[in-house]
């Protein structure tokens, strides 16, 4: 297996569904930072067969809602002194504000300026959300 050095203090985003690592990497704007990061694609995984993995040698604030929307099954490991001190399992957020756009052309959010959309989770199994305003469904 490819060997990437451990990190002293930072974050490892593990168990990312293969193919989604790059999307998360870009969503977190890790391609623009000046500290050490690593995106590992298609690493062997006992649980998933293969997985993507991101290592971040820095403490940063993560938007868990965004990560949960992209891949609710990933794991976030907080690293201190090269040890995992905390693991965070994600779930689909119950409500998502300001990220998704309503696709319904008759929805008020399509015409009214400065309205932040909110979508509410209606079915975690199908990743279905509904627009708070017009109730239109959208699936991730």
């Amino acid at each position: 297996m490819l060997n990437i050095n451990g990190i002293k203090r930072g974050i490892v985003i593990d168990h990312i569904k293969p193919g989604l690592g790059f999307k998360i990497f870009r969503e977190l704007k890790l391609d623009e930072v000046d500290y050490t990061t690593a995106l590992i694609k298609n690493a062997p995984s006992d649980k998933l067969g293969t997985k993507d993995l991101i290592k971040i040698d820095n403490e940063i604030d993560l938007d868990l809602d965004v990560l949960g929307l992209i891949d609710p099954d990933l794991t976030i490991c907080i690293i201190e002194n090269e040890q995992v001190v905390k693991k965070i399992k994600l779930a689909l957020p119950k409500a998502v504000t300001g990220i998704l756009q309503c696709k319904n052309p008759r929805c008020i959010t399509s015409v009214e300026p400065h309205v932040e959309t909110t979508f509410l989770l209606v079915d975690a199994a199908t990743k279905a959300y509904k627009c708070e305003y017009c109730n239109s469904r959208t699936s991730l």
């Binding site: 008020i108 305003y133 017009c134």
Partner: peptide, 10 residues
Amino acid sequence: RHPKEGAPRL
């Protein structure tokens, strides 16, 4: 009354 859906909620 509004032609756009969700206007009263807003």
